[in-house]
Amino acid sequence: MTKTPYAAPAATRRTRWTALALAGAALVSVTAGAVLPASAAEPQGAAVTTAGRALHPVDTVALTALMKPGEVASGTMVRVGGTGPGWTAATGPLSQDPAANFRIGSITKLFTSTLVLQLVGEGRFTLDTPVQELLPGTLPAHWKPITVGQLLSHTSGIQQPCVDFVDGEAPTPEQVVAHWTDPRCAAPQYPVHVQQYNGANHFLLGMVVEKVTGRSYADEIQRRIARPLGLRHTYSPKPGDRTVPGPVLADGGEIEPWAWAEGGMLSNAPDLERFMTSLLRGRLLKPAQQRQLFVMPALSEGAVDRFSTGGLMRAEIGGTVVWGKAGSMGRSTSGVFATEGGRRTVVYSFLPASKDRELVRGHIAALVGAAL
């Protein structure tokens, strides 16, 4: 394994790129305890019954109010889909094109998890297979076995890195993982007591995809997901490519070149809606792996962000359970969430105007709640 040069060996230092990776959950996670505005928690209008369950109309009044540029967000895009009439709008310095492209950040993890579950369904390996067997020599020899399932559910125990990349460096996935495994940094925490969101898990999963298939991660995204679903705006860019083809939803700001299978993909709202609907309706996975999407491990109890054994984030808003993923990249914060079976989906992206995490977190809960 090739080690990268270090900017500084300070053991207590958190890297800029690590902080951005964590933002996908810590800054923008939708939590069960978030308080929704009254209008979002109690949408007006008669409920529509779908598959025996109530599906309320989209609270467009609440969404319109929440999307006005203000102290939380300077511009917002929301797309609501699923069963029944859809709705989409954008405000502030964002493209008014409903199919504008953007960097999806840690939403990428949903695509990576899907690839891994497909390979499990093909018998290439199991959720109990140690990653050390699939990627020999990648992790330190003294580490205990870490399984594919532990990576998917963020129960690997891998800790955060303590070293920096050199400015301007475009590291390989192997070099990124080397920062998490550097002997000067904390070793995995054993036993694992609770889920701990960590981008290292999906870098390793992306490496597993490439090793097992013999193809690049970008090629597998196209071959297994994007082309079969007709996702024409969804792809993993080449290393170092920071461009976003037009129309662009918003000025992306500074884009990290390393994100890859952890947070580097591009897409748009229609594609993300179609992907999420297809995933939740079983069009991408075999039945056994489809069930894993909704199994919550015991270690998820008490976690800041809760993930299923299949890698889906679970949240409860106004008494309704939603599944999906949030993410950040550059200046924007985005997410895709859906109710069971994809009966209602919501894709959002906005430019945060506040650094108050709780304020932003509550704003996201309100947006998603108004769309349910």
Rank of each mutant, 00 (worst) to 15 (best):
A303M: 01
A187M: 09
I255V: 15
L22I: 08
A338W: 04
P43I: 02
A90G: 10
V248W: 04
D59W: 10
L63S: 06
G263Y: 03
Q150S: 08
I317P: 09
L117F: 10
F165G: 08
L152Y: 04
G33C: 02
L139W: 04
R224N: 06
K286R: 15
Y197T: 05
F294T: 14
T50D: 14
R361Q: 14
E210R: 00
K238A: 15
Y197G: 09
S267Y: 00
G324S: 09
E256C: 05
G70V: 11
P136A: 01
Y6V: 12
R184V: 13
L367G: 06
W260H: 04
T83G: 09
A100Y: 03
V208T: 12
K144M: 03
F125V: 07
K325L: 03
L280A: 00
G230W: 10
Q118Y: 09
V78K: 06
I255W: 09
P191F: 01
S39T: 15
V166R: 13
L284M: 03
A11D: 13
G24T: 11
G45E: 05
V131N: 07
G341K: 05
V61S: 13
T172Q: 08
G252Y: 10
K3T: 12
T138P: 02
E133S: 13
R357I: 12
R103C: 00
L312S: 02
P37F: 12
P140W: 08
A250C: 07
I255H: 08
V48S: 13
S156D: 00
P239K: 12
G264L: 00
R53N: 04
P188A: 06
G121N: 00
K144N: 12
L152E: 10
W260K: 01
S334I: 01
A99P: 07
G92S: 11
A298L: 08
E316Q: 13
M207Q: 13
T181I: 09
R16V: 14
M67E: 01
A7N: 06
E340C: 08
E42P: 04
